[in-house]
Design a protein around this nucleic acid. Structure first.
Lengths: 249, 249
DNA sequence: TCGGATTGAATTGTATTCACTTTGCTGCGG
DNA sequence: CCGCAGCAAAGTGAATACAATTCAATCCGA
């Protein structure tokens, strides 16, 4: 195939991940937002993006509308889309919201029960975490590995809640910008150890079919991440007044 | 104006509510979904809608994407949009999620405090409710009035939480189809009286700056609506097995 | 009669074009 | 020097045309 087509499909990068250009463009723009290529508050120019991504304005507009639905963009009639700004307070609040939602998810999971496959994945994540933490300190790359373990645990539990709306809302909480890059929360070994212990207890409560205990534990678990974040922010000298109320948990 | 223009703007019905056609079409399609004009599970035909609404496919597609973002539609590449189905279990779950979220909102409001205007609106809603309920029974249309009073209370509190993500998520919970039309929950006077008392107590907690008490009360308050719904559904002979877990509260 | 490939209509995806709104500049008047 | 009217450029909104995919009916072959 010596390039006879006038359009070397932009998706040629991988083995055809996206089904159509709109979805592909959506992913690309989302990444650009999340990694800061386009900065917060910035107004998005449709023609510029369409030139950059080598597509027409149509899939770009579709992508922008989708991202507005995800809460990453604001829309104003006749003025287009702007990158939504997430002040520190909103990021902190997002953890609080996520804590509440994941608490409900844990309760639902405890009520509804886990499939054999789900139990397997979670138990694997628990064992893997125990093994990783056994040494008492982290090696290079261990944190990345644990991030995957942590994701498996939460994702599986969320799936066990068997409620799509809940899943989508939690996903939105995870996509709050800076909640990943700024979130260089003090990831000391002791903190991770404690959070992994939380996982054990949460799983116990779910297996024991104790919904409310599962909810409280999960809520406290996620809320703990928020507290770590707030603490590290304060230590770094950020203004504490941005954080209201029960900052220190 | 003897109709010289080829396009008598479809928005001519009112004093120009929507800023552009996409938004107007979004509202119209949303209404069609919520009131059951298009039934659940049905696949949406873009050209059909564009003919019915007398616009091109472009604003229709924009509207569909927006509604997919609101969770009312599902999207499948190359297959378009379908009206999402909300089984009874999902509707019940939505109340549970909303209870959790509004609980957080009440806590935030208690932490952040209310503006004078917000206090005024809430106190007015409390007084109006007291007056409406004083007679001991409902007249025709009283329930509609109370629905407005109830909305004022909740909306104002939600605004006082000062968090947009929270507001949007709760809004989504409210838009779950059938949560309004099927929700002919046993609206007996006694039930409404009790819920209005809840409002008083929640407001007291917020004024007293007791965040956690406000959260618990609000959560229980919304959860109570769910319980009423479940109870009335069971009484009507619907299958109770759809409702899992803590059905009866 | 059943299975499967094929073809054509229906439907969605994308590009292009035109219309309208916004916006910023320019120049005239105060 | 300030302010406002008007105009031009840029950008978004909508419609239309075209391409690609899906879906169903039909036709063939076993």
């Amino acid at each position: 195939m010596p390039d006879p087509s006038p359009l070397p499909p932009p998706e040629a990068g991988g083995p055809g991940r996206a089904a159509n250009r709109s979805l592909s463009v959506t992913d690309q723009i989302r990444d650009a937002i999340l990694d800061g290529t386009v900065s917060a508050g910035e107004r998005i120019n449709e023609v510029r993006f369409s030139k950059t991504l080598e597509v027409s304005r149509t899939p770009v507009r579709a992508a922008l509308q989708a991202l507005a639905g995800e809460g990453l963009l604001d829309y104003a009639p006749n003025r287009g889309f702007t990158v939504r700004e997430f002040p520190l307070s909103a990021i902190v609040d997002a953890y609080e919201i996520r804590a509440s939602l994941e608490g409900v998810a844990a309760r639902f999971a405890a009520e509804r029960g886990l499939s054999a496959e789900e139990r397997a994945i979670i138990e694997e994540s628990l064992v893997a975490g125990d093994k990783l933490l056994a040494r008492g300190e982290f090696a290079e790359g261990d944190l990345t590995i644990y991030r995957g373990i942590n994701g498996d645990f939460h994702d599986t539990l969320l799936g066990a809640a068997r409620n799509r709306m809940l899943a989508e809302m939690i996903r939105i909480c995870h996509h709050v910008p800076m909640s990943s890059s700024r979130n260089i929360v003090a990831f000391e070994h002791r903190d991770v150890r404690r959070r992994h212990d939380d996982h054990h207890r949460i799983y116990d409560a779910i297996l024991a079919r104790e919904p409310w205990r599962a909810e409280v534990l999960m809520r406290e678990h996620v809320s703990g991440v928020k507290s770590s974040l707030v603490k590290s922010l304060i230590e770094r000298g950020e203004q504490a007044d941005i954080v209201h109320g029960s900052a220190a948990g």
